[in-house]
Simulated scan of single mutants.
Amino acid sequence: YLLKLVDDGSLNILWEIRCPDFDCNSVILRTHNLSEIMGKEIECDYCENGLLVRRQHVFPVFEINDDFREFLKQSKKKQVNYLHAL
């Protein structure tokens, strides 16, 4: 379902690289272009461990597109608050 929303432009997909150290588990970076980072050596800013980026370190993250966010705000404003009207 979320990928359908990416296709229609409502959501953007980002790729999150997380530190594999269970004590750390920090988000190292987020990127739109996964091919730029795959197979690269990066370092965690928190625990300073080095990491060769592989599939197991990559997680999809979805964010609301700015235009869709504005549409949701406007549609929320147009809804009638029946309890408030009483």
Rank of each mutant, 00 (worst) to 15 (best):
Y1V: 01
L2P: 00
L2A: 03
L5E: 06
V6H: 05
D7R: 12
D7E: 13
D8A: 08
D8G: 03
D8C: 13
G9I: 07
S10W: 08
I13G: 01
I13M: 11
E16V: 05
E16W: 08
R18I: 06
D21Y: 13
D23T: 06
N25S: 09
N25R: 07
N25L: 02
S26K: 10
I28R: 09
T31I: 02
H32A: 09
H32V: 01
N33Y: 10
N33Q: 09
N33S: 06
N33K: 11
L34F: 03
L34A: 05
L34H: 02
S35M: 08
S35I: 05
S35D: 09
I37E: 04
M38C: 13
M38E: 14
K40G: 02
K40N: 09
K40L: 09
E41M: 10
E43I: 06
C44M: 04
D45W: 15
Y46A: 02
C47S: 02
E48G: 01
E48C: 05
N49C: 10
G50M: 12
L51D: 04
R54G: 05
Q56L: 10
H57G: 05
H57F: 11
H57I: 05
F59K: 13
P60R: 15
P60D: 15
F62L: 13
I64F: 13
I64P: 01
F68D: 01
F68A: 11
F68S: 05
F68I: 00
F71P: 00
K73Y: 15
K73M: 14
S75P: 00
K76S: 08
K78N: 10
K78C: 04
V80K: 15
L83F: 13
H84K: 15
L86D: 12
